[in-house]
Amino acid sequence: MVKANFNEGVLQMKIELAAYNPAWKIQFQQHKRKLENCFKNADIKIEHIGSTSVEGLSAKPIIDILIGVPDEEDLPDVVSALAGEPYIYKKVYDQALPFRRFFIGVREDVIDLYPNPVEDEGLTVAREHRTVHIHAVPVTHQWWEEHLLFRDHLRANPDDLKYYEETKKVLSEKKWESGNDYASAKSDCVMHILNKAKQLKTN
Results as ranks from 00 to 15, higher is better:
residue 177 E to C: 07
residue 17 L to S: 08
residue 137 V to M: 04
residue 103 F to Q: 01
residue 142 Q to K: 12
residue 146 E to Q: 15
residue 97 L to M: 00
residue 144 W to A: 06
residue 176 W to Q: 03
residue 6 F to V: 11
residue 141 H to R: 05
residue 117 P to R: 02
residue 94 D to M: 03
residue 27 Q to D: 05
residue 70 P to I: 02
residue 145 E to P: 05
residue 36 E to G: 06
residue 60 K to A: 12
residue 35 L to V: 11
residue 35 L to T: 05
residue 51 S to D: 14
residue 66 L to K: 05
residue 185 A to M: 01
residue 90 K to W: 02
residue 6 F to G: 05
residue 17 L to F: 09
residue 200 L to K: 12
residue 167 T to R: 01
residue 180 N to W: 00
residue 151 R to I: 07
residue 152 D to S: 07
residue 81 A to N: 06
residue 77 D to P: 05
residue 158 P to E: 11
residue 76 P to Y: 00
residue 58 S to K: 12
residue 153 H to V: 10
residue 75 L to W: 09
residue 82 L to K: 02
residue 104 I to C: 00
residue 100 R to K: 08
residue 17 L to D: 05
residue 27 Q to V: 14
residue 117 P to T: 08
residue 16 E to P: 04
residue 114 Y to T: 07
residue 138 P to M: 15
residue 50 G to K: 00
residue 178 S to E: 01
residue 113 L to R: 07
residue 145 E to Y: 11
residue 181 D to G: 11
residue 108 E to R: 01
residue 170 V to H: 03
residue 21 N to R: 10
residue 68 G to T: 13
residue 43 D to Q: 12
residue 42 A to V: 14
residue 149 L to N: 03
residue 189 C to E: 04
residue 92 V to A: 00
residue 50 G to Q: 07
residue 8 E to Y: 04
residue 16 E to F: 12
residue 154 L to M: 09
residue 109 D to V: 07
residue 159 D to M: 14
residue 121 E to W: 14
residue 163 Y to S: 12
residue 126 A to Y: 06
residue 51 S to M: 09
residue 91 K to R: 08
residue 36 E to M: 13
residue 81 A to I: 08
residue 176 W to F: 10
residue 159 D to A: 15
residue 37 N to T: 09
residue 199 Q to K: 13
residue 136 A to S: 15
residue 37 N to H: 11
residue 39 F to H: 05
residue 168 K to T: 10
residue 187 S to Y: 08
residue 179 G to F: 11
residue 41 N to Q: 06
residue 161 L to T: 10
residue 42 A to H: 14
residue 53 S to E: 03
residue 85 E to K: 09
residue 46 I to V: 13
residue 198 K to S: 11
residue 143 W to Q: 13
residue 191 M to T: 14
residue 97 L to H: 07
residue 33 R to N: 09
residue 181 D to C: 07
residue 24 W to G: 03
residue 124 T to H: 09
residue 49 I to S: 00
residue 110 V to N: 05
residue 203 N to T: 12
residue 106 V to C: 03
residue 112 D to R: 04
residue 29 Q to G: 00
residue 128 E to M: 08
residue 26 I to M: 09
residue 2 V to R: 04
residue 195 N to A: 15
residue 134 I to G: 08
residue 107 R to L: 08
residue 124 T to A: 07
residue 193 I to V: 14
residue 202 T to E: 10
residue 110 V to R: 06
residue 79 V to E: 14
residue 200 L to G: 06
residue 166 E to S: 13
residue 73 E to G: 10
residue 22 P to V: 15
residue 108 E to T: 10
residue 31 H to N: 13
residue 183 A to V: 15
residue 99 F to N: 00
residue 112 D to V: 10
residue 110 V to P: 00
residue 198 K to G: 09
residue 118 V to E: 01
residue 19 A to V: 15
residue 185 A to N: 05
residue 130 R to I: 12
residue 186 K to M: 12
residue 37 N to D: 11
residue 200 L to S: 10
residue 16 E to G: 03
residue 115 P to H: 11
residue 101 R to E: 04
residue 150 F to D: 02
residue 106 V to L: 02
residue 38 C to H: 07
residue 163 Y to P: 04
residue 181 D to V: 09
residue 159 D to P: 02
residue 185 A to F: 03
residue 111 I to L: 05
